[in-house]
Every structure is written in C-alpha cells, then in structure tokens.
Design a protein around this nucleic acid. Structure first.
Lengths: 158, 158
DNA sequence: CAACTACCTTTGTATATACAATTGTTGTAC
DNA sequence: GTACAACAATTGTATATACAAAGGTAGTTG
C-alpha cells in the first residue's frame, strides 16, 4: 500500500517547541502532516482489499458514471494525476477484474472503460469502512470546529 | 520533480456543490487537496535546483547537525519515510555532490553522512525561496485565522 | 568460541507520480 | 488526396514510497 510520507518528524517537533517558526511554514507543515495521517489511515482501510487509494478513486469515478461509457480523458479530468498514470491505474484494475476496457467504435483513438459488477461490489463493501475511518479521523473536533476548519481551508485554496 | 496528486478534482467539485457530503469526508478531502497544492508549489520552487522535497528535507536535517556525524538511522528518525528510502535518497544527494558518506570506524555497521559545502550553499539559496513560497501560499488568511487553523489541525492530530 | 540474536544498512519488487517522447487515429488545409 | 496538425492513449525514464528479505557487523550466551 502506498502511503505518502513527506515531511519530517523533526518539523513536527519544531511545531511544538519553537514558536518563532514562521506561521506560514508552520501551517504548511501542519497541513502536510495531517494529510499524511489521513492518507495513512485510509490506505490501511483499503489494504485488506489490495487496492490503492488511487485505484479506489478511479473506481468511484466509474461508478459515478452509472454505466455511461467513460474514456481515459474523462477519468483524467476528474483526477488530478497525469494521463500517463491513469492508463496504468486502469491496467491494474483490469487485472483485478474491477473494470473493463474497450476501444471506442466511433473514435478509435478513445478507450472506453466500465466498472464491472465485481468492482461495484467491492466499492459497496469498502465505502462504509472508508467513511467510518474518515469519521474517526475527524472526531477530535466538534461540528462547529470542523466547519471552521473547512471554511479556512477553502479560503486558503482560492 | 515529484508532485504527489492524490485526490480527485471531482471531489473538489463535490466540496463546493453538494453540501450533504459528510463533514468528515469533506474535511479529509479538503486537507488532502490543500496539501497537494502546497507540495506542488514547493516542488516548483525546488525544480530549478533539481532536488526533490525529500532530498531538500534530508539536506536540512544534515545542516541541523552542524558537522556532527549523522548516520542513516539518525536521518531516518527525523524523516517519516522508510529506511529503505533514505539509503537511496542519500545515493542521489551524493551524486549531486551535496553530501558525503563514510563507514563509521567505531561501528562498521553504521554509515556516517555529512553535508558538503556545496550542499550548504544550495540550502542558503533555496531556503528563502521556499519560505517566500510558503508565505504566499498562506497569505489568503489573516494571522489570527492562521493561528486558529493551526490550533484546529493540532487538535485533530492528537 | 561457535551459535544466536540484535543492529544497521542495503537490495528487490510493486505501486504511484512527473515529465517527455512516441504511437496511432482523426480532422483539416492546401 | 496527401501533408500536417490536433487528439487520445501509451510507453519510457527518473523519483519516491511501502513492504519484505537479505547482507554484513557487533554483542551475547551457552
């Protein structure tokens, strides 16, 4: 399982001890460490099912299409990752029997991808576990605090 | 340059439109997207210098040692990443002339790593650029808002 | 002191990502 | 209608990470 671990534990210590660190730097570190924690937890939820977070996201995109044909570009537009990656993510999902790939008849440059029944079934099992994990990850904050946090993050990302 | 891009743009849309998404899920997505933005920006700052964020972090750890011998385990303890990775990160920094590696005389199992003058010089150039980027990334929020944000994040990560 | 264990690092394999180049298809312009 | 550009996807290479296994060194124990 792929868990992204980018920032130093040392920086975590700095966060606690040296308050003279710039607020900007502190914020960047804090966000990054939190993100790593989240990603780690969700990866652990997915681990028994042998799919990565990225594969999980592709599956959810395909389910969201409700059977409509989805080409790689469509998936790509909904991912932040690069095209190159999407091809290979789909390769792995095909191997697992969760998706199928066909050449588009109307435009042979395109490739159409569908989620299989097995893929849907896997999502049904996994979804509530992920949601449960997400709930647990955020339970240290009250509803109001979470709303404040989300407001600040949205403002930050404009 | 290595920019990790984990969550879907689609989820970003959900963030804005469908308010019925669970607050927990929303928070996890928001944090992840923010982290990706930050990482992307800092990677772009480092790109002209041809070093990754991870390599940059190793260099800062070594500088923090002020010439004291630093073995891989020391670096490892300050990184969140795995040992296996640290060996290869150091390999690449050696190729760039930023660090040196020697077998420890007192304990031949250990490997001592030092930052070179060139490594220090690179850090001196890069540090203010990174700080500037971090400042820009957070300037949408006031000082008080940043303090609130950091407080909430710390609470979340306990 | 030989065997065992613990320690420190390295190596191997699979996954994910960034970026660049390439392949194959469609559409367009001359 | 052939050459060229645009489009859609794939492939190649380098980096980073997770996890497991292996290698070499030091200490410990019978």
């Amino acid at each position: 399982m792929y868990i992204q671990l980018l920032y130093m534990k040392e920086l975590e210590d700095i966060l606690k001890t040296k308050s003279e660190i710039s607020l900007a730097k502190k914020t960047v570190i804090n966000i990054s460490l939190t993100s790593v924690d989240f990603r780690d937890s969700i990866s652990n939820v997915l681990k028994p099912f042998d799919i990565s977070i990225e594969q999980f996201n592709v599956l959810r995109i395909l389910r969201g299409q409700n059977g409509k044909p989805t080409n790689l570009q469509d998936i790509q537009d909904r991912m932040v990752s690069k095209m190159s990656n999407t091809t290979r993510l789909v390769d792995k999902l095909i191997l697992k029997g969760f998706v199928e790939r066909f050449v588009c008849e109307h435009n042979r440059r395109k490739v159409e991808i569908f989620i299989t029944k097995e893929g849907l079934k896997a999502l049904e099992t996994i979804d509530p576990l992920v949601l449960s994990s997400e709930t647990k990850l955020t339970e240290a904050l009250s509803k109001d605090e979470l709303i404040t946090l989300n407001t600040l993050l949205s403002k930050l990302r404009d």
